[in-house]
């Protein structure tokens, strides 16, 4: 497995604006990694997503400095349509990418354009439908679905194309809590079964903690941290600076420390099970009733 995405001194400025919204980005992502991009609204997360598949600068215009190389191709030199076979992108507003009159047609559109055989198309639609829990909705009109169902439909349409890299811009903002875990589970299985590389922007710290290999934290167009969830979520000062909420159990460790406990930063939990361990060890390993 090698590097699949590499940004070199990449900066970007929207047309008719004079401020850079992405500033001197340098990073590389390995094939098969699950990356979460976090940071406050307006930090540049969505702009970065669009720069990865070449929509920036090809469709938006504007000024670009530096390069982004995706699977050996320079985004500035390759057409968006060619890039779309390598990178699938799910937009933040699902309504912006739904346009057919049936859920099934929505899912078929991308794969039909890949010129796959009919049987394969049918198979992939059935798979994608099941994965996002939209069984029974095949004949429904996408615009008549609920907010969360629209989001699932948009994810399935992209999933069905089985791209090498999937970029999802807040794919769960309107999903119920378990639906959010399900979508993350699906994405994780894509990574495990197909070696797919995943980039996802999200505000849901508690959900993403157990899934992401690394978290990229953005602030004012720059990358201010890029490390494992364990390292990122333990850094309370960084998180409050970038308006990312730590998982509640990490905050719990902070609260205990401000009340006289001495939990080491590297022992701060991010998952419920880790918090249980932490509390037990604080209590001297004693169990109930002993």
């Amino acid at each position: 497995m090698g590097t699949i995405i590499e940004a070199k001194e990449f900066s970007y400025c929207y047309p008719r604006r004079d401020n850079q919204v992405l500033k001197d980005l340098n990073f590389s992502i390995e094939e098969g990694e699950f990356i979460a991009i976090m940071g406050r609204n307006g930090a540049g997360k969505s702009t970065l997503c669009q720069a990865l598949d070449g929509v920036i600068p090809h469709l938006h215009g504007g000024t670009v400095w530096g390069d982004i190389i995706v699977d050996g191709l320079n985004t500035q030199e390759v057409e968006v349509a060619d890039m779309a076979q390598k990178i699938g992108i799910v937009l933040e507003d699902p309504e912006a990418q739904l346009f057919t009159t049936r859920v099934d047609d929505e899912m078929a559109f991308g794969i039909e354009n890949l010129c796959l055989p009919r049987e394969e198309i049918i198979k992939r639609i059935a798979w994608a439908t099941k994965v996002v829990r939209l069984e029974g909705y095949s004949d429904r009109e996408p615009t008549a679905l609920s907010g969360g169902q629209k989001q699932r439909c948009a994810i399935a349409a992209t999933l069905a194309m089985k791209p090498k890299i999937m970029v999802l811009d807040e794919p769960t903002s309107q999903l119920d809590p378990i639906g959010t875990y399900e979508v993350f589970d699906v994405i994780k299985s894509l990574k495990e079964e197909y070696g797919m590389t995943i980039l996802i922007t999200t505000h849901k710290s508690e959900h993403i903690a157990q899934y992401a290999d690394r978290i990229m934290v953005m602030e004012e167009g720059k990358i201010v941290a890029f490390d494992t969830p364990q390292v990122i979520f333990r850094d309370a000062r960084l998180l409050s600076h970038v308006a990312v909420r730590p998982p509640q159990v990490s905050s719990l460790a902070g609260y205990l420390n401000s009340n006289g406990q001495n939990i080491k930063r590297e022992d701060f939990p991010i998952l419920v099970e880790e918090a249980e361990e932490m509390i037990r060890s604080l209590m001297g390993g004693k169990k109930d009733g002993q």
């Binding site: 509640q248 719990l252 419920v272 918090a275 509390i279």
Partner: peptide
């Protein structure tokens, strides 16, 4: 629906 993370933790450690 899953309750907030802290509620899950409290529920898990109810007896202890």
């Amino acid at each position: 629906i899953r309750p907030p993370q802290i509620t899950e933790l409290a529920n898990a450690m109810k007896e202890e």
